[in-house]
Design a protein around this nucleic acid. Structure first.
Lengths: 129, 129
DNA sequence: ACTGATAATAATAATTATTATCAATTTTAT
DNA sequence: ATAAAATTGATAATAATTATTATTATCAGT
């Protein structure tokens, strides 16, 4: 992977906006700084960054894929009401790959744990109605 | 939900083909038995069955969503080589929602754990080359 | 500084996946 | 049997992603 301004911007936008954005949201975030950037470039770079283990994909939300700049092990909580993605600390479940191997023999390179529910913000606003 | 032949067939195809198929794959599987069924009907019914907790969605594979007839708690292993989806028994990780709550306070309605790696079939065939 | 090889880009077309629309048909409860 | 509600097939519309193509940027080696 060579250096490119576009890739820098995408990575920077991901790091500065820990909102687990989609490719499209990133495109929006970056355009003010580089109006000429192409959506295809965003997609291409995101895929490359994922392939190189620099960022992570989060799927599970309906429709589009979200991205996460944080490589440290952690999980996600998706609010089914506001669709926000929250981080969940690693100690909720540890060494899952190891347990998988000892129980089934399968060797996983990665694991992805995602919870779904209603976040506290949405629970409060619902009560307030 | 009313009864309909189409829904019966979709559910039956899912149960008889534990390959975690996509909507499109199910369409293929069903057409020999009912050539007039519409792809839209397949999508519509899958969504309804998911909403009623009769089947489950599996996302995480690139592209399309896969479906699982089994409602019993279990997880998945996706082979990055052949793209097959294997079932992983529940005892690999138990009571995750409870641990989430006690550690973070978040209340999850569901959790989804997916491993990725290369299955034994693909590992063997690679060695054989 | 210049060059060739390669990688990356913008713009857009193409593809794939899914949902919405709607008139016609089927199912269910009366 | 019949009316209301639900479901269907066909297709259009939308959304998400990937592929294409001509052009431009990067970088190691002159």
């Amino acid at each position: 992977m060579n250096f490119s301004k576009q890739r820098e911007l995408i990575l920077h936008a991901l790091t500065q906006n820990p909102i687990h954005p989609t490719a499209d949201k990133l495109y929006e975030l970056i355009r003010p700084f580089m109006p000429t950037i192409s959506l295809a470039t965003v997609y291409r770079n995101l895929n490359q960054l994922v392939d190189n283990g620099i960022i992570r994909k989060i799927s599970g939300l309906d429709g589009s894929v979200h991205y996460d700049h944080c490589v440290e092990k952690h999980y996600h909580f998706i609010c089914t009401c506001c669709n926000k993605v929250y981080d969940v600390p690693y100690d909720v479940a540890q060494d899952l790959e190891q347990k998988l191997k000892s129980l089934t023999g399968l060797e996983a390179q990665s694991s992805d744990l995602t919870f779904k529910g209603i976040c506290s913000v949405c629970q409060k606003s619902k009560k307030g109605d």
